[in-house]
Computed example of a mutant assay.
Amino acid sequence: MSTLILVRHGQSVYNLENRFTGNLDIALTKLGKQEAKNAGEKLIHFKFDFAYTSTLIRAQESLNIILKKIHQTDIIVIKNEALNERNYGSLQGLNKEETIAKFGQKLVDSWRRSYAVRPPDGESLEDTFNRTVPFYKQIIEPELKLLKSILIVAHGNSLRALIMYLENISAQDIPNLNIPTAVPKCYTFDENLKILKMNYL
């Protein structure tokens, strides 16, 4: 069997301020750091072969806190922009409530939650899927087939894309999927990458 753990980074400054973050490089809050420590406590009995994260500091810092907590700071860490948060375009940095007041709840919800609709000058979840999932299939799946244990610490939308692929979630159903910050999701696979078990820890 192989194991895959997915973790969304802890709370960032822009999460706290209710702003669209996207691929802006925003740090963790004090709470976000504590959330990452809490995630590490849940992973204390796992032994990982590799860890993957994005090129953004909030994911890297969350991963570093987790690895320190589980005493595995010596494992190989691969950073790749394929795991970055989606680009929210001209919405990045804007307050979400103010954006809703300006554009309306329905339109903002379609920008945030739908599969194919792009925010102005930004990426849709479909765009994110089309860079995140090929990276996963090319780089990470071969390791899982070798029965490795993998930790991925990334972002709400890059993880939504991965979970959409892993669990075969449709474009119609993906708007209902929310990824909580710093709550590990564990997948156990057989040698053919069939999911044997999946659960939040």
Rank of each mutant, 00 (worst) to 15 (best):
R131H: 14
K68W: 02
I100P: 02
A101S: 14
Q72E: 14
E97F: 07
I163T: 14
K102V: 05
I78G: 02
S114P: 03
S62P: 02
V77I: 15
Y88R: 09
L159E: 04
K106F: 03
D121E: 15
N95P: 12
R113T: 12
N64Y: 08
A82Q: 07
N157S: 01
D74V: 12
V133R: 07
R118E: 15
K148F: 04
R118C: 15
I140T: 10
L144V: 03
L147W: 01
K106W: 01
Y115A: 11
V133Y: 05
V117F: 10
K148A: 05
I78C: 07
R86P: 01
I70D: 10
I100S: 02
L107T: 15
A82I: 00
R112M: 15
Q138M: 09
K102A: 14
Q92Y: 03
V108D: 04
R118L: 13
Y136N: 03
F129E: 05
F135W: 05
D121L: 12
K106T: 14
G156V: 07
E98D: 14
Q60I: 15
G93W: 00
A154P: 06
L162Q: 00
T99I: 10
Y165V: 02
Y88D: 06
N84A: 10
G122E: 06
Y165F: 13
E81C: 10
T99C: 13
E123W: 03
Q138I: 06
L63E: 02
I150Y: 00
P142C: 11
K69G: 03
I78S: 07
S110W: 01
E123Q: 06
N130W: 05
I65S: 08
